[in-house]
Design a protein around this nucleic acid. Sequence first.
RNA 1: CGGGACGUGGCGCAGUUAGGUAGCGCGCAUCGUUCGGGACGAUGAGGUCGCCGGUUCAAAUCCGGCCGUCCCGACCA
Length: 566
Amino acid sequence: MRWSQAYIPTLRDDPADAEAPSHKLLVRGGFIRQLMAGHYSLLPLGQRVRLKVMQIIREEMDAIGGQECLLPAMHPAEIWRATGRWDIVGDELFRLQDRREADLVLGFTHEEIFATLATELTSYRQLPQIWYQIQVKFRDEPRPKSGLLRVREFSMKDSYSFDLDAAGLDRAFEAHRHAYRNIFARLDLDTLEVAASSGAMGGSDSVEFMVPTDAGEDDVLHCPHCGYSANQEKSDSRLEPIDDGEGLTVPEEFPTPGIRTIQALAEMEGGAAPERQIKTLVYVIDGELVLVLLRGDHALVEQKLRDITGATDLRPAHSEEVREAMGADPGSLGAVGVTDQRVIADEALTGRTAMTTGANVDDRHLRGVDVDRDISVSQWANLRHVTGGEPCVECGTPLEEFRAIEVAHIFKLGTKYSVDLGVGVLDENGKTQVPIMGSYGIGVERNMAAVVETHRDEHGIVWPLSIAPYAVVVTVLKMDDEATVAAGEQLYDELRAAGVEVLLDDRNERPGVKFKDAELIGIPFRVTVGPRGLADGKVEFTYRSSLETVPVALDEVVGKVVDLLP
RNA sequence: CGGGACGUGGCGCAGUUAGGUAGCGCGCAUCGUUCGGGACGAUGAGGUCGCCGGUUCAAAUCCGGCCGUCCCGACCA
């Protein structure tokens, strides 16, 4: 492509800097433009990168026996009602009606639709199957942000496996893990595989592929010693034993005027340290008021509560609801003697004695609380936020905590969708078997953004060769010098003839502008053609990653580039 | 959903406090000079000041409502 004819609208109002977020680089480089919050247009350069990412994914999916399909983006509501997700998914599902007022859905994933196709499977001889597509997904995110990282409309490669038994599902799951590792290697992304919450997707087991970077929106805990890795939503740690000493035989109520927070109670004369307090939270879970207990110095991870309760609707109770049910305001709440409400307690409270908690009377607390003796716990669970530095649950080494981008997520689903939509095959005995499903997703544009986030410097983007929009830019320095232009044109023709994706910078711009633009948009190799080098029959070859420049004889350029290509 | 900020040529912004001819930088067009690391000069084009309503002789500016965008938090498949 000739740059002079290409649509590459770079923005030069301010210099690129090392702090700029990835989406700003993509905008400045002329890759993307925003249409509205969470919806982006991909310009020619951006689309070239996207197609390359898609092709890499396609090749690796095909390599594990995946078969590509393309399903509709718009679905009838009935199919979502059949699995219950019409109600479960809530506001994140885009819904619309057609002219006959039939309810429709814009697909945010395709378990239902692939399962519908799978109802045509009739024999165990047809299994296993791996079907996939690269499709637009729609998700009405509460707050789209960070450019391509969190959007409402995006391309996803989603695949679905159908197997006869758990061993088959394991094979499909591991095949995907293998394919994904290959994909990330080709994208030059260092990923960490972490245990994750399955959320509303359901199922038994799920693994997220995370790219560590501060730009990420997920919180990951990782053990540098044994490799234990988990999303905060699924995290665990070893608890240091706490000596509670001798407790009272009965809890003792005492006045705490104006004390509303854990911190205030800790600082009060006769109070208690945060780890000696019980924090009482009130949640409304599917319409039911539930008490959630944590150690005073621990924070709740709502997703954990969501997961263990299987809740579809979960929110903190309003203060009026709290007062009506408990008879006191937040700040003086406790679970001692409470039998009307379900009580879910974090495991860190097991066996604890001599604890302090609210008395359910304003401005009163209880000390000497023995959790097992005094509180009727309906359910024990791991609910707490695990913080970096806590001992690894496997080996006790202090955990590292960092931010990461979730670039893929793979799930073992089980038989939910098969059952709900009536998927079944006959086995060798003529008995009906319900295939076990897995589902596996990888976001195309989010991976682009993750690559930019991890491949950039103060000059702009540094695309890996595998997904760069062009491999080489031939920069012609003097467009009014016939010999220089001729040499550039010839190189351009030769490179194209050799199958190289090449951009010819034939713009009538000053050299500095051309260099800066080429660096900003991140073309891996630059061949600079100018009269100075040409006098010796040479051009300059510059690597974008290091900005190292070496002289190369004119007739050796094509060979050098071809050698560098994968 | 809670908190905060912002909407003014293509992009980035000033002007709003105190109502009175809509400005600056970049980019864009033409010409000239220049040109191996984001050139310079000259001349131009381009804006219903987010939208609707109100106050006023007069509104980018004051008032009311709405819409949009961004940031923090919550949520998130």
